[in-house]
């Protein structure tokens, strides 16, 4: 076995091809959001959320009769997320290690996380033998937005659409975000110190974890204020 295996290889000094823009742009977040509800006519509730070039459209159908099971004592909830074609998904990776996002898996993790959130928010017991479906469409995405930040936007969009749909919910939920170079966290609050869901990639569990939750809570309180203001304005304008 003294064959020279070196000839199987190319020249020793080759380097892999690297494109100039392959690095994701630095993350910056502009908290300004634009909200509109009721744009889609044929569903029970819908919302349009725009934040810094990210556009998310949510539509909610239900309660509709459910024929899939013999008997349901409460509504079954379904969440579907659609990421439009040609979205810049490079930054929807984990922020520290460069995990290439497989689109299908990305959607599945978003869907299952949102399901756990909204199951605790909607009063499913009030709708026996029915199903409620939430459709989220990410139409445009700011390439600088990370997965967790996009998740926050999606959840807020769905919360507003839920109010628009008139389904029984516990409260207006709003999701706060806290991010730095080495960690990100999104916490969905339904009220003061009431957590509906948490997504965090903290590696250390110490004071910084607590302060990150504080940041999320502040962010969520601020957002809820804005959302409530908008909804109130919309409700009074109708009359």
């Amino acid at each position: 076995m003294n064959a020279d295996r070196r000839r199987n290889l190319g020249p020793a000094n080759v380097r892999p091809l690297v494109f100039a823009e392959s690095k994701p742009p630095a993350q910056h977040t502009n908290p300004k959001i634009f909200l509109e509800t009721g744009l889609i006519q044929n569903c029970s509730g819908s919302s349009y959320l725009e934040n810094d070039k990210t556009i998310i459209i949510t539509s909610i159908y239900g309660p509709r009769p459910n024929f899939t099971r013999s008997f349901n004592d409460q509504a079954s909830l379904k969440v579907s997320v659609e990421l439009s074609k040609f979205l810049p998904l490079d930054n929807l990776k984990d922020n520290r290690k460069n995990i290439t996002p497989d689109k299908e898996r990305l959607i599945a993790s978003l869907e299952s996380f949102m399901l756990s959130n909204f199951q605790s928010l909607i009063l499913l017991q009030n709708y026996p033998k029915s199903s409620i479906e939430i459709f989220v469409q990410v139409v445009a995405l700011n390439p600088a937005h990370s997965l967790v930040y996009t998740l926050k936007n999606i959840i807020n969009g769905v919360s507003v659409a839920l109010v628009d749909s008139g389904l029984n919910i516990r409260s207006v939920a709003s999701c706060g975000y806290s991010g730095s170079t080495d960690h990100e966290m999104a916490v969905n609050f339904s009220g003061q110190d009431e957590i509906l869901g948490i997504w965090s990639d903290f590696t250390a569990f110490d004071e910084s974890f607590d302060s990150a939750i504080d940041t999320c809570e502040k962010d969520s309180v601020q957002l809820r204020k804005e959302i409530n203001g908008y909804l109130l304005q919309k409700a009074t304008a109708k009359q």
Partner: peptide, 29 residues
């Protein structure tokens, strides 16, 4: 010996849930 990522909510049932508070989160960790 340490808590690491992920710390994440998962849906363990399809039934109605409830929000939890931070004390409970700390207790879980």
């Amino acid at each position: 010996g340490n808590i690491v990522a992920p710390i994440q909510s998962v849906a363990l049932s399809t039934a109605d849930g409830k929000a939890f508070n931070r004390k409970l989160l700390t207790k879980a960790l």
